[in-house]
Nucleic acid binder design. Structure first.
Length: 487
RNA sequence: GGUCCUGUGGCCGAGUGGUUAGGCUCAGCUCUGCAAAAGCUGCUACUCCAGUUCGAACCUGGACGGGACCUCCA
């Protein structure tokens, strides 16, 4: 029985889909105006695991994750350019060139992390009409108003009949007291009001026609419009990073209720942040790691590179609702643990079976599922897998025994968790490390041959050369030393 | 300032009112030509103070430390 921690109730609740076996899940995706960093990746890797586990349990999941490619003002000032326009000017590109570049980059990284593509990956610019319609409906329902081509959501009016701050458990009066005074929002009636539609200046690069003039959508309406379009007015799971909880998701709920009179999602899942030296990794903080810097080890804070699957395993060792701190020591520990896990996995198939087992495999399996059913506790599930690792190695060493049936159970368990649920099986496309190793190996052979040559041991040096060539490597002795090429 | 989360052994990280997850590191042992791998053994923690309890790392209150959100951010 799966239980999920629901941000709305701040408790673990039994997961009951609205229309089992169908499950609708919406996750707030990236804003594609720059490279995704590891913090972003952690969120999407967490939801990938959740998606995979739901599928593994037999649910038919429609997983929607948007691409934000419009709107999002640079500051809180309505006068500002949006992020795409700003970046576009900087790089002298069309906004959609920026969008294309970083969307492709994002998908590449997600592929490297072996995450499954969502069922639908809708873009904000592709759903301007839906956003305009939703905005109009909210106006018609009396919960939004237009001023000078801008449309704002009336939070205080909404609060008379709804609990605006329920997602973060905050009271309206506290929110009103604590909101900072900001400039350039003279058109708003209330200081908590937020924009649904923003009037564009003539020079603004991305703008669309609307009932309120030329403009672009506000910061939150896209998710409301797209989740509603693809998952309906009410669906099962809405997720995102914890940083989206207070503002983005709070406003999404207000918009959906303002439009349809219903809460959009029954379960809200929020994943915690990735930190570096205790501080949140963020673009604006300037401590963001890029995935390729981590894979190659080119980041100044890293001693070496780490394979994508090792990094993913590292993330899985921590519960998704805990902060995870990034460090060389932690990564190295996980890298080693990961390879031990995978080596044991490979060994299972060739284990010799006996009439009886010395370890209860069913207990391990049940432990794994109990952990996952307890709010996706991958950390504990992995701990159980390591119980299996020890057992597998012991059987392999002839110190313990396993039955044919238990062996099959273990193999199925590892297939399920390593491949299906966690998705940490090595894929052939991640071969950077392999290439580096190959290069080192060839150089070792060349060195051996050169030593033989130096000793005038021509029989050995020639034999080495012939075998190296036979392996597919062409040697070329030059004045600068021995070069090689792979043919 | 407000709201909230958090403080676990050398490091990373789960966790339940009573029976000391797991990983990494380190030491010893088995194995081994040497090493590695693997197995075994050991290192027994829960910020501090007070309270509730037969019993608390886990519940309550307080102190101190760290963090998040309140502003775009996964």
């Amino acid at each position: 029985m799966l239980h999920i921690f629901n941000t709305l109730t701040r408790t673990k609740q039994e997961f009951k889909p609205l229309n089992a076996p169908h499950v609708g899940m919406y996750v707030c995706g990236p804003t594609v105006y720059s490279d995704v960093h590891l913090g972003n990746c952690r969120t999407f890797i967490s939801f990938d695991m959740i998606y995979r586990y739901l599928v593994h349990l037999g649910y038919k999941v429609r997983y929607v994750r948007n691409i934000t490619d419009a709107g999002h003002l640079e500051g809180d000032n309505d006068e500002g350019d949006d992020k795409f326009a700003k970046k576009a000017k900087l790089e002298q590109l069309e906004p959609m060139e920026i969008v294309q570049r970083y969307t492709v980059g994002f998908r590449d990284v997600m592929r490297q992390f072996n995450t499954l593509p969502p069922s639908i990956e809708p873009t904000a610019t592709g759903h301007i009409v839906e956003q305009i319609q939703m905005t109009q409906t909210i106006i018609d329902n009396g919960l939004a108003y237009e001023v000078n081509g801008n449309v704002y959501f009336d939070v205080e009016k909404f609060s008379k009949t709804n609990n605006y701050g329920k997602l973060t458990n905050r009271k309206l009066e506290d929110l009103l007291t604590n909101t900072r005074e900001l400039n350039g929002q003279d058109d708003k009636r209330g200081k908590l009001d937020f924009a649904l539609w923003i009037k564009a200046k003539p020079e603004h690069l991305m703008q669309w026609i609307s009932p309120w003039g030329m403009g672009f959508p506000g910061w939150h309406i896209e998710c409301s419009a797209m989740s509603r379009k693809y998952l309906g007015e009410t669906f099962d799971i809405h997720g995102g990073g914890m940083d989206l909880q207070a503002t983005h998701h709070t406003n999404e709920i207000a918009q959906n209720i303002g439009c349809c009179g219903k809460d959009p999602a029954t379960y809200w899942i929020h994943t915690n942040m990735l930190t570096v030296n205790g501080a949140r990794m963020g673009k604006s903080v300037g401590n963001a790691f890029l995935p390729h810097e981590l894979f190659s080890g080119s980041h100044p804070l890293l001693d070496k590179g780490y394979a994508p699957m090792a990094v993913k395993f590292f993330m899985c060792q921590t519960h998704y609702r805990s902060t995870l701190d990034f460090s060389n020591d932690a990564l190295q520990a996980s890298e080693k643990a990961y390879s031990r896990l995978m080596e044991a996995y490979v060994k299972i198939e060739n284990l010799k079976t006996s009439a009886s087992s010395t370890t209860n495999v069913i207990t391990i399996k049940e432990g794994c599922y109990a952990a996952m059913n307890d709010d996706f506790n991958t950390s504990v599930a992995i701990a159980h897998l390591f119980d299996a690792v020890r057992f597998i190695n012991s059987v392999n060493d002839g110190k313990e025994t396993i039955t044919e049936a238990d062996k099959a159970t273990l193999l199925a368990l590892f297939n399920a968790f390593v491949n299906d649920v966690l998705g940490i099986n090595e894929t052939t496309q991640n071969n950077d490390k392999l290439l580096a190793t190959t290069d080192s190996l060839i150089n070792v052979l060349i060195e051996l041959r050169n030593q033989a040559k130096a000793n005038k041991d021509w029989a050995t040096s020639d034999a080495l050369r012939d075998k190296i060539i036979a392996a597919g490597v062409q040697l070329n002795d030059t004045k600068e030393g021995t070069k090689y090429s792979i043919f």
